[in-house]
């Protein structure tokens, strides 16, 4: 009996180890590769053997990559600020005020968040050309609204629905207008939710590729995902794996740190959208 139990627990921990290795190994291997240069790159090392910062110097000392990082930071930050600003008031209305067509409106917002981005690409392309935004950060900020806004509205609505009704009633009795209720009563309670949704929207904007690829046309206006996808060597055959891995590590480490710090809140935020049934 106890043998059986031991075997079971060994099997269980083997599964746990397999899950961890499966999740972490590819990124670990990217880090190992990013420290290798020259011929060292083409040896297969399971454990770190080289420690050469040349790839990082190559990427960060380059003409365009630091600029690409700045572009990404700027675009993602403005997108998030805009989405949160629009979403806070809207989600108050959706969560706390009863009006006809609310369910339909919520479903429409959810439907927009499921839009295939390619379906709006042609129309957005025309709009961006018309507004003269092509090849500027504003083109991306505008187009990223299509996935950040519905998402933030949806998650904030679910958060706000769960706030106790008594707080709001007390404020109403005191004669507070809806605007005062949002800014003075709800906003302080919403901070955790705002941080979570903001972070998730930031990650979404930071990682976006299709719009960034289509609406930028120069190396210095690209965002980091496009820059990494386009990193190429002297010839087609010669892919600069070292610098690509270094660039990948640079853009990923901040995200992983943020995600690990806020992991509990992120899991709550991810599951708030619909999986509450």
């Amino acid at each position: 009996m106890s043998d059986n139990k031991l075997l079971k627990s060994i099997g269980f921990y083997a599964l746990v180890v397999a899950i961890v290795v499966f999740s972490v190994f590819p990124f670990y291997y990217a880090i190992v590769t990013s420290f290798a240069t020259g011929t060292a790159l083409f040896e297969i090392n399971y454990f770190p053997k080289h420690f050469d910062l040349a790839n990082y110097q190559n990427v960060l000392g380059g003409r365009t990559f630091p600029r690409n990082i700045l572009n990404s930071v700027f675009i993602a930050s403005v997108t998030v600020a805009l989405a949160l600003f629009l979403a806070v008031t809207a989600s108050y209305a959706l969560a706390r005020v009863r009006f006809r067509g609310r369910g339909l409106l919520l479903m429409t917002i959810l439907a927009v968040s499921m839009f295939p981005q390619i379906a709006v690409l042609a129309g957005l392309f025309e709009l961006i050309k018309f507004l003269n935004l092509f090849n500027t950060p504003w083109a991306l900020i505008l187009s990223y609204t299509i996935f950040t806004l519905p998402f933030t509205v949806w998650v904030l609505t679910t958060f706000m629905r769960d706030l106790p009704v008594e707080i709001e009633e007390a404020a109403i009795v005191d004669g507070a207008t809806p605007w005062v209720i949002i800014t003075k009563v709800f906003l302080p309670l919403l901070w955790p939710a705002l941080v979570t949704t903001g972070l998730l929207a930031f990650i979404g904007a930071w990682n976006e590729f299709l719009f960034a690829l289509t609406f930028t046309s120069q190396e210095i206006t690209r965002t980091t995902p496009v820059a990494i996808a386009m990193l190429s060597g002297a010839s087609v055959q010669e892919i600069p794996w070292g610098p690509i891995m270094a660039a990948s590590v640079i853009v990923t480490v901040p995200l992983i740190v943020l995600v690990l710090i806020f992991q509990r809140k992120i899991v709550a935020g991810l599951t708030a959208g619909g999986v509450k049934g």
Binding site: S23, W206, N207, F209, I244, M245, L255, I256, V259
Partner: peptide, 19 residues
């Protein structure tokens, strides 16, 4: 373990494709 499984999710798709 829960922290570890969040890592693939946090990595940008382009980066995972290149990796």
């Amino acid at each position: 373990v829960r922290a570890a499984i969040l890592i693939p999710w946090a990595i940008p798709t382009i980066v995972s494709a290149k990796m």
